[in-house]
């Protein structure tokens, strides 16, 4: 191998060429393999909606950086709720823990053994009260077949809810069909629902459940920042977005033509010649000022 030492000068350029070739070959091979693995990694991020991560699980992006797929959470789950995803059969990244609420829901143990067992913090150890868990949100997804929605008193999802009357309430409304009965509509409240899936598990319908736990990213919308519910917040203003006009004393405030008062020649006065332009029908007294 290092046999021909005397002929040192000769092999050098060949060595360099070989070195470059080998390097390029290895780098190219690694690039191809790396892209394949990256593809798998990106694929795995698309966690199926029906696969629910254990309580305290980090957001999926962070979870795949933290979960070593050791299965200790699944081992310490007293109800065998958690299982590790198997390649080809289950959607989540192979070997990561999840559960299917319709099969075995989370029983919401007070001591949260799965989180305690996690050696890496993929299940966040700062979760100490199981009622704060956020595995997903139950959604009454089939309102045509839910027995309560049809006017019966099934109530099972409501009764089994570990956070009864907070996460699920029965909202009474008029039964239009019969005209003189009530409908007790199971209604999920996202601030209290932990996504344990007991409601989904216990739905009496055969096959699929009418109420299903979905990830928060799917089940909830995001209200725009400038929306305000007037009955919750009496102040209609949103700082720096909507402001009331600073009115000056002048003609009636409901005078649309000059809410703040215009002066001829003032900047901002609509050009009377333009489409939609106009000339104010009156002049303001005094110096007036900068309306708006």
């Amino acid at each position: 191998m290092s046999a021909n030492k005397p002929a040192k000068a000769k092999p050098k350029p060949i060595d360099r060429r070989r070195f470059l070739q080998d390097t390029a070959r290895a780098a190219a091979g690694c690039a191809v393999a790396g892209m394949a693995i990256s593809h798998l990694a990106t694929d795995a991020r698309a966690l199926p909606a029906r696969a629910i991560r254990p309580p305290g699980a980090l957001p999926e992006d962070d979870f795949l950086a933290a979960c070593i797929r050791c299965g200790l959470c699944a081992r310490d789950c007293p109800y065998d709720t958690l299982k590790l995803a198997e390649l080809g059969f289950d959607g989540p990244a192979t070997g990561t823990p999840y559960f299917t609420a319709r099969d075995i829901p989370c029983e919401m143990c007070d001591d949260i053994p799965c989180v305690v067992a996690c050696p890496t913090g993929a299940l966040d150890h700062s979760l100490t009260n199981i009622d704060d868990a956020d595995m997903g949100i139950a959604v009454l997804i089939d309102q045509e077949r839910c027995l309560n929605a049809l006017g019966l008193r099934c109530d099972v999802c409501y009764r089994v809810c570990p956070v009864i009357d907070e996460a699920i309430t029965l909202e009474r409304r008029h039964n239009e069909r019969s005209g003189h009965h009530a409908i007790f509509m199971p209604t999920v409240h996202s601030d209290a629902c932990t996504g344990c899936g007991k409601c989904e598990k216990s739905c009496v319908l055969p096959g699929e459940s009418a109420i299903k736990v979905l990830p928060r990213r799917i089940a909830t919308a995001e209200a725009a920042e400038h929306y305000k519910l007037g009955w919750e917040d009496r102040n209609p203003l949103v700082d720096e977005i909507i402001d009331l006009p600073d009115r000056l004393p002048g003609p009636g405030t409901d005078n649309l033509v000059a809410p703040g008062g215009y002066l001829p020649g003032t900047e901002g006065l609509p050009d009377p010649n333009m489409d939609g332009g106009f000339t104010p029908t009156f002049k303001l007294p005094g110096t007036g000022g900068t309306g708006q």
């Binding site: 693995i37 990694a41 962070d62 795949l64 797929r69 192979t94």
Partner: peptide, 12 residues
């Protein structure tokens, strides 16, 4: 790949 994808890449 672990760094770029933010995952434990080889475990895939």
């Amino acid at each position: 790949v672990s760094m770029l994808t933010g995952t434990i890449a080889w475990e895939f």
